[in-house]
């Protein structure tokens, strides 16, 4: 799949933002006033920037309002609704904590549940696609939730929890890569065309000599050659280095900042791989 910057930024930042919301809703960290303002501003900035980035993926965004209408069948619609519901639920919680020194604990807890559901619905947009075997597995939503949890804990200053979670998400990511590598589906022209029973099938002439939307979007092959290097970078940055910083060194703003920066780089690398490595079954028809 085409690793469009819009979807990489969207899944990376909104995952971090809603992960942070999930902690803030539970009163972690227990702050108020200007400190609370900084935390909520960060959560809103990350999630809103992510959501805004996702709209750059749209060919015709002026119809975007309709995207909230199909919650009964569409995970993308559910994601939109949950994201907005989460952002709205946290508004009174944030106002209470920042300006009124008031704790809306129940609403905060509801907001946390909403934030987790938002990340889950995001993951299901990809998991539901049978056409992309690398995404269509139970580990995909687990991975998205763990990423959001680890990133959220990091941003919420929960140093030891973040250290443990970043290690867990790294393990889950390694497992997902292993599972995904065993699920490569493309290239079976005989199965795709139904002609395999007659004999060996090969592409004689493609349907078009020019590129097209299908090839650009779903038969993307650039950038796969650095897979091993990117996996190494992601493994180190997502979990190993931040965990080392957080668990081995004394807590402090600087170590936390370095851990967050490393983690975000790692998440972005793993998201690039998530898209770039995903093989769509339609590529089979092109003999790829």
């Amino acid at each position: 799949m085409h690793p469009a910057p819009s979807v990489i930024i969207f899944t990376t930042l909104s995952g971090l933002g809603f992960g942070l919301f999930a902690f803030l809703g539970l009163g972690l960290p227990d702050v108020s006033g200007w400190v609370a303002f900084v935390f909520f501003a960060m959560a809103y900035a990350l999630s809103c920037t992510g959501l805004l980035a996702s709209t750059f993926h749209l060919g015709n965004p002026r119809n975007a309002i309709y995207a909230f209408s199909q919650w009964r069948s569409s995970w993308l619609s559910r994601e939109g609704i949950m994201a907005v519901a989460t952002l709205l639920t946290f508004a009174p919680v944030a106002i209470g904590r920042v300006f009124l020194d008031m704790e809306l604990a129940l609403l905060g807890a509801i907001g946390s549940v909403f934030a987790v559901l938002t990340v889950f619905t995001t993951s299901m947009i990809y998991t539901q696609l049978k056409t992309i075997a690398r995404w269509h597995m139970p580990l995909t939503p687990v991975l998205f939730l763990l990423y959001a949890g680890a990133g959220g804990a990091l941003l919420a200053g929960q140093a030891s929890l973040a250290g443990v979670l970043t290690l867990i998400v790294t393990g889950a990511q390694l497992l997902a890569w292993k599972q995904g590598d065993g699920r490569s589906t493309t290239g079976d022209l005989g199965a795709a065309t139904g002609l395999g029973e007659i004999g060996q099938v090969r592409l004689l002439e493609s349907a078009h000599t020019a590129r097209n939307y299908i090839l650009d979007e779903m038969a993307f092959q650039v950038g796969r050659k650095h897979v091993q290097k990117l996996r190494m970078i992601a493994t180190l940055c997502v979990g190993a280095l931040p965990a080392l910083l957080l668990l081995a060194l004394p807590a402090g703003h600087l170590t936390a900042l370095i851990a967050v920066v490393l983690h975000v780089i790692g998440v972005a690398a793993s998201r690039w791989l998530f898209f770039a490595q995903a093989e769509h079954v339609v590529a089979s028809y092109y003999g790829r």
């Binding site: 015709n60 119809n63 975007a64 995207a67 696609l129 049978k130 056409t131 339609v282």
Partner: peptide, 11 residues
């Protein structure tokens, strides 16, 4: 809205 998800879902 031109999100392309339907094209992604089509085998």
């Amino acid at each position: 809205i031109g999100c392309g998800l339907c094209a992604w879902s089509c085998a």
